[in-house]
């Protein structure tokens, strides 16, 4: 049977619900020899800042059971470099490109947003208010409802592109943050960013990461992410991009059933560079096997009584 996998995230038209999680797919070029970029529903690039960022000193990564802790610290060449050198290549693939941005002040977010106009060819702006690895800004914005709203409002006023607020799980009540950013004009939310964590080397008797703390990602965080998507789906009306430990197509389906309109594939790209492609194929196969004509029938379906 023919199945439909198209979804619409706040005006971002995706031919399937799979995008990449910011920071896990570079700017696409690194993975182009393993994944046909054109097959992706969308591609979200590594978070960009106004000025180039060195990032944190190494070690930046620690492996933990079923996951990794990272403290890259938003290393990036800056938004202007990206727009000039990386974006043209991405736009050649005719898929929606989502640009992730982060600032250390509300003004920086506003200045970044102002550079992201529809004529750049960019499809949407993901606002990273949840990076746990930078000293200024980052998670500080995402863990306070008022500050989160200030950032989203500043971005909203400076770009006409769809605005996606990326939420942190490192909060007491993710629903209140979601409500706050939606009130400030977010067209969609993406969740979750990494879970703040720590690894210690028992022989060196020191933290493994130079930054001490890092963000946990990978299969270990999937239940946390799924719970967050479920809660946010019940709290807000806007589309959700769900992510956190998605490794297989069935993981992706779980997120959609919990309320995600689209999903992002992240850490698993590091282990299987073809993961995004395989998950897209797997979703298609799942819909056929289960005789579900349209992926949209599954969005949030686990909240409802009827059996699909």
């Amino acid at each position: 049977m023919t199945v439909r996998t198209m979804v619409d995230v706040a005006g971002i038209k995706m031919k399937n619900p799979v995008t990449t999680a910011a920071g896990t797919f570079g700017n696409g070029e690194e993975y182009a020899r393993y994944v046909n970029i054109h097959d992706l529903g969308a591609l979200c690039v590594k978070t960009l800042t106004l000025e180039p960022h060195h990032g944190n000193p190494p070690p930046r990564i620690a492996e933990t059971p079923g996951g990794i802790l990272n403290a890259v610290g938003l290393q990036n060449p800056g938004i202007d470099y990206f727009l000039e050198h990386n974006l043209p290549w991405l736009l050649r693939h005719n898929i929606p490109v989502i640009v992730s941005i982060a600032g250390s002040t509300v003004e920086e977010y506003a200045l970044l947003a102002a550079k992201l106009t529809p004529d750049t060819g960019i499809a949407g702006v993901e606002v990273n208010i949840s990076c746990p690895n930078v000293k200024a800004g980052g998670i500080a914005f995402g863990s306070n409802a008022e500050m989160a709203a200030d950032v989203i409002s500043a971005v909203r006023q400076n770009t006409s592109l769809p605005v996606i607020a990326k939420l942190s799980p490192n909060v007491t009540d993710i629903k209140s943050i979601a409500l706050s950013v939606c009130g400030a004009g977010a067209d969609a939310v993406s969740l979750i960013n990494t879970v703040l964590g720590l690894a210690i080397d028992p022989y060196r008797r020191k933290p493994v990461l130079a930054n001490i703390f890092g963000g946990l990602s990978g299969p270990a965080i999937k239940p946390i992410a799924l719970r967050a998507v479920w809660q946010v789906y019940e709290a807000v009306e806007v589309p959700i991009i769900g992510m956190g430990g998605i490794t297989t197509a069935l993981d992706a389906i779980e997120f959609i059933l919990a309320g995600a309109t689209a999903v992002a594939v992240g850490t698993t790209n590091f282990i299987n560079p073809r993961a995004a492609s395989e998950i897209i194929t797997g979703i298609y196969n799942y819909l056929q096997e289960c005789h579900i004509p349209d992926i949209k029938n599954l969005i949030g379906a686990a909240h409802r009584q009827e059996v699909v």
Binding site: G26, E30, G55, I61, V72, N269, F270, P273
Partner: peptide, 16 residues
Amino acid sequence: EERMGCGVGACLCCNV
């Protein structure tokens, strides 16, 4: 040598 993530240049975890 450095602790490595993706191996293909995407994750920026092994930087020196």
